[in-house]
Design a protein around this nucleic acid. Structure first.
Length: 433
RNA sequence: UCCCCGGUAGCUCAAUGGUAGAGCAUUCGGCUGUUAACCGAAGGGUUGCUAGUUCGAAUCUAGCCCGGGGAGCCA
């Protein structure tokens, strides 16, 4: 007997097969049962009649949702079945029956956010959530394949750090060994600046932690970030890399996860259009776009969610806004030679109102300027000595950016909130399950 | 930290000052092509907590707790 996955059921039309999975739903119609099974790759309807398979019928009748089962039967094309194929059940083994006293809490209907988040360990079994997690995995694979093909080497940054990377955002403090203080990283950037000077072109990809009191659909306390850094690279190099990376991620998902996008009812045409080059506008041009749309933003203001939405809605592809004022950007960003009040920085804003998915810049490579900026930002110089070493020993112009994985995947999936695109979201006031 | 919204059965919601209800889920019964199946019946409630107003509070008031969305900040 061949054991198959439901996703491949169509290839076994007419064959007797085994499916190992769970009971997703059961419709009973007298002496005829219509169970729907899932196995993580998809769902398929089964048919079981009392007359033809009495043993299987009795095992299945009244069986509770999410009971684990091993089913044997014949695959056949069937117009009336969801998905076009069904399995005519000849045998069933119940691996574990969900007790009636404790039924599976997630039903085939709408549920509230609070409830679903409390049940996240079970929520991920639903077809929609499973599709999202597969798309996330594909996005990671496409991103890493692209970076590797571009000659970038993965160099992992530490999770424990002795000080802030940017000083402004709130850090999680942890007790390190023998009463030392340490913090959970908020970015691997400072460390990959070091590995970039060792290896040339590098990136880091892993979780980062921000103890910000942010309660919005775009924020997680723990999120994953892919950060490239390259020696002898400038702002334009990073914008080119960024548009190539995002194109590769989106096209990889479109190519390999069309079934999942269909499950999510995502408009794939909008994604197929996401190909480099992306539009680029300066900060000053972006301010003009905002003012034309009646937004009160003036030169020198930073953009909030509303502003990002207005700007990104003006384009059908991600747009890169560059040359922000230094005053509203991080201390380590290189000023423009012609316009010292502007930083060689850029943000990439995703379309459809999803906002910033990349933030990047060329870094300050001059020792004295960096020391000056540390002082201006009241950052402890002692903690940054190793970082300053990178400007003492063969300093070169270099640049990089950070891509937020969850924001990118949320946009690709079209989800309302980024909490759905990570298996177990960590948010303000929520660390369960 | 601030602003806005919410908390009623396991779940999704109704009841706006006068006996706390429906659908789903669960249990029992019926149905040979169902599509979140359908039909009939049953069990299931300290209306987030505390105090107050009132003859009477799920409903009005105050405080607190919990959750959601947003601002700031950021990916």
């Amino acid at each position: 007997m061949t054991t198959i996955t439901i996703a491949n059921a169509g290839r076994h039309d007419g064959q007797e097969v085994t499916i190992r999975g769970w009971l997703y739903n059961l419709r009973e119609s007298g002496k005829l049962l219509f169970p729907i099974f899932r196995d993580g790759t998809g769902i398929i309807q089964g048919v079981c009649s009392l007359k033809e398979s009495p043993d299987a019928f009795n095992a299945l009748k009244g069986l509770t949702q999410e009971s684990s089962v091993i089913v044997t039967g014949k695959i056949r094309a069937e117009q009336r079945a969801p998905g076009g194929y069904e399995i005519g059940i000849t045998g069933i083994q119940v691996v574990q029956k969900v007790p009636e006293a404790t039924p599976f809490p997630i039903q085939l209907k709408e549920h509230g956010v609070d409830f679903l988040l409390d049940q996240r360990h079970l929520w991920i079994r639903t077809p929609r959530q499973a599709a999202i997690l597969r798309i996330r995995a594909q996005a990671v694979k496409s991103a890493r394949d692209f970076m590797d093909a571009q000659g970038y080497t993965l160099t992992d940054a530490p999770m424990f750090t002795p000080a802030a990377c940017e000083g402004t955002t709130t850090l999680f403090e942890v007790n390190y060994i023998d009463d030392q203080k340490a913090f959970l990283t908020q970015s691997g950037q400072l460390y990959i600046e070091a590995t970039a000077m060792a290896l040339g072109k590098v990136y880091t990809f892993g979780p980062t932690f921000r103890a910000e009191k942010s309660k919005t659909r775009r924020h997680l306390t723990e999120f994953w970030m892919l950060e490239p850094e390259a020696a002898y690279a400038g702002l334009d190099d990073m914008m080119e890399l960024g548009e190539g990376l995002v194109s590769a991620i989106v096209q990889g998902v479109v190519k390999h996860r069309s079934r999942e996008l269909e499950t999510l009812k995502r408009d794939v045409k909008k994604l197929e259009n996401i190909k480099a080059p992306f539009p680029r506008i300066t900060y000053e041009e972006a301010v003009a776009v905002l003012q034309k749309n009646g937004n009160p933003t003036k030169f020198g203001d930073d953009f909030g969610g509303d502003e990002e939405t207005v700007i990104s809605r003006s384009f059908d592809r991600p747009v890169m806004v560059h040359h922000y004022p230094s005053a509203i950007k991080a201390f380590y960003m290189q000023p423009d030679a012609q316009r010292p009040d502007l930083a060689l920085s850029f943000d990439m804003l995703a379309p459809e109102g999803y906002g910033e998915i990349i933030g990047g810049s060329q870094r300050i490579h001059d020792f004295d300027l960096l020391v000056q900026r540390l002082k201006q930002n009241n950052l402890p110089e002692e903690a940054f000595q190793w970082y300053l070493d990178l400007r003492r020993y063969g300093s070169v112009p270099h640049a990089g950016f950070g891509l937020g994985l969850e924001r990118t995947v949320a946009w690709i999936c079209g989800t309302e909130h980024i909490r759905e695109v990570i298996p177990f979201p960590r948010m303000l006031y929520r660390v369960y399950p």
